[in-house]
């Protein structure tokens, strides 16, 4: 399997007024092509910082990090990834289509290509027919789907998602989880997904990276035994429950010193 993201002994220290904060320490990780990797851990464990380092929004102070065999900064310029934040961050003055074509405009795609790509990703996130609507006319879940479409529009191989469904209610979240798995199966993207929900991590991932704080580090990496094809009711199977239990134990181990 191709290595897409490779972190070797990376550390990231923020200098603050109260002294240095070790957001990440000795993080070793490889993510292969087509993996769905979840990062889970309590707040302050560095899961978001790690995702931001992969996106070149933060720079590690130690170690080596490569994305698609490049420095993260070069990878970003080569449009290696699309990033989805917790909030949709859609512009109220642009339609849904306008929002999705925003990165395409910035990257200089020609108009006809933009239109075609926008239509395609709208279809992909099941929002076909909503392109001419404005963000306020859509529900929170639909807005977040639009923001995922925006991240997919320029055909990055990697999708980085930072608690994308954290602000949504559980019913909507279930539906979007299902839709995300469907989208992952259709597109074969590599997905790195930050969450603080154990069921969400277990349901979505091929690998679950459990992290703990002070300093932010990886305590365990759990490979999922679940099949790739996962209906929602897989969550009631013994395998799922056992896996969730394992993640919970790993989280508790990481917390042993609190």
């Amino acid at each position: 399997m191709n290595e897409v993201i490779r972190a070797q002994e990376i550390g990231l220290t923020f200098q603050t007024a109260d002294g240095p904060v070790h957001a990440l320490k000795d993080v070793d990780l490889t993510i292969g092509q087509g993996d769905f990797v979840s990062f889970i851990g309590p707040s302050g464990c560095g899961k978001t910082t790690l995702l931001r380092a992969i996106a070149a929004l933060e720079t590690p102070t130690e170690g080596r990090l490569s994305v698609n065999g490049m420095e993260p900064d070069a990878a970003r310029k080569a449009r290696a990834y699309g990033y989805v934040f917790q909030a949709p961050g859609l512009y109220p003055w642009r339609t849904i289509s306008g929002n999705i074509s925003l990165p395409l405009e910035i990257m200089g795609f020609p108009r006809a290509d933009r239109r075609q790509r926008t239509a395609r990703v709208l279809e992909l996130v099941d929002l076909a027919g909503f392109g001419a609507k404005y963000p306020w006319q859509l529900s929170g879940g639909m807005q977040q789907r639009a923001s995922i479409a925006r991240a997919l529009a320029f055909d990055a191989d990697i999708l980085l998602m930072d608690e994308p469904f954290g602000a949504l209610d559980e019913i909507v979240r279930d539906r979007l989880n299902e839709a995300l798995l469907d989208l992952w199966a259709k597109t074969g993207k590599t997905i790195a997904f930050v969450t603080h929900s154990i069921p969400e991590a277990v349901y979505l991932s091929t690998r679950i990276v459990v992290m703990s704080p002070r300093p932010g580090r990886i305590t365990r990496i759990i490979d999922s035994s679940l099949p790739r094809d996962r209906p929602l009711d897989i969550r009631d199977t013994p395998d799922f429950i056992a896996l969730a239990h394992e993640v919970r134990e790993a989280l508790r181990d990481g917390h042993g010193d609190d």
């Binding site: 970003r76 449009r79 909030a87 961050g89 910035i106 990257m107 320029f154």
Partner: peptide, 16 residues
């Protein structure tokens, strides 16, 4: 910060 990070993730120029 999130809006600006999004722009940065698309490698947008200051004028964009």
């Amino acid at each position: 910060a999130m809006q600006l990070d999004l722009m940065k993730s698309w490698s947008a120029s200051p004028s964009q």
